[in-house]
Amino acid sequence: MNKNAINGDFNFLSSLFEKFFKQKYIKDRLLLIEDKEITGWEIWLQIELAFFLDDQNNVMEWLREVPCSMDKRIEKLKLQGIIDFWLRERNKSTETMIAIELKQHKDAKQCIKEMMKDINKFNSLKPSEHSYIRSFWCVGVHRTIQEGTCLTYINENKQGYTFDQNHLLSQEIKGTNFSFTIL
């Protein structure tokens, strides 16, 4: 993959998610989720993100829950996987998309473990499916931890994955006890 494209995608997504999590409405909901100890709110997060993406001028196109064929030599149990979002930045390639998996868990260690599983899932897609994906990212929402701790959890859970620390953003969602992490 082209390093400039990957860096551009990381910067684009970092800016997009910073803007998403600055919304008062989203912060208020996260406070309620924590206060009422609500679990299983990943689909809510996906739907809110879909509404948000639809309003962004720099997002040319987005798709949700895109099916992809799995390579049976690697992923023995499934024929197909689902990627949460594919999106295309305006004025970028019309032939490839950015793939995003979302995760949420109040425990940062568990959230990052699940994010790393998704990275491994991406690596088990059929090679023909990769041609449509310019870059693949996981975005997790979890209780706030230090970025160094985040990196420790990543290293504990990576399997055959070369992790570029320059493509890690773990940022507190101000006014809440949550952070979002992009890797």
Results as ranks from 00 to 15, higher is better:
residue 68 C to R: 08
residue 49 L to F: 11
residue 7 N to R: 13
residue 85 F to Q: 01
residue 70 M to F: 08
residue 43 I to C: 01
residue 102 L to I: 14
residue 17 F to Y: 14
residue 80 Q to S: 12
residue 35 D to F: 12
residue 24 K to A: 04
residue 94 T to I: 14
residue 19 K to V: 02
residue 98 I to D: 03
residue 94 T to R: 14
residue 106 K to F: 08
residue 38 I to T: 07
residue 100 I to A: 09
residue 89 E to W: 03
residue 34 E to V: 00
residue 21 F to K: 05
residue 50 A to T: 09
residue 26 I to G: 01
residue 81 G to P: 06
residue 80 Q to P: 00
residue 44 W to I: 03
residue 62 W to L: 12
residue 60 M to W: 04
residue 105 H to Y: 07
residue 11 N to R: 15
residue 32 L to H: 09
residue 79 L to E: 15
residue 85 F to T: 02
residue 78 K to Q: 07
residue 6 I to C: 07
residue 96 T to G: 00
residue 26 I to Y: 02
residue 21 F to E: 06
residue 29 R to Q: 09
residue 101 E to H: 05
residue 83 I to H: 04
residue 25 Y to M: 04
residue 11 N to I: 00
residue 106 K to G: 04
residue 73 R to H: 08
residue 31 L to H: 06
residue 13 L to G: 04
residue 83 I to A: 07
residue 33 I to W: 02
residue 16 L to T: 12
residue 103 K to N: 05
residue 79 L to V: 01
residue 86 W to R: 01
residue 82 I to K: 11
residue 103 K to H: 05
residue 71 D to H: 10
residue 21 F to H: 06
residue 10 F to H: 09
residue 76 K to L: 13
residue 103 K to G: 02
residue 20 F to W: 03
residue 63 L to C: 08
residue 58 N to D: 15
residue 66 V to C: 08
residue 94 T to Y: 13
residue 71 D to F: 12
residue 56 Q to C: 14
residue 77 L to C: 01
residue 85 F to R: 01
residue 44 W to N: 06
residue 61 E to H: 09
residue 26 I to K: 00
residue 9 D to G: 04
residue 40 G to S: 10
residue 86 W to I: 02
residue 77 L to F: 13
residue 96 T to K: 14
residue 20 F to A: 03
residue 57 N to Q: 12
residue 72 K to S: 13
residue 60 M to R: 05
residue 40 G to C: 04
residue 10 F to Q: 07
residue 59 V to R: 02
residue 28 D to M: 01
residue 43 I to K: 15
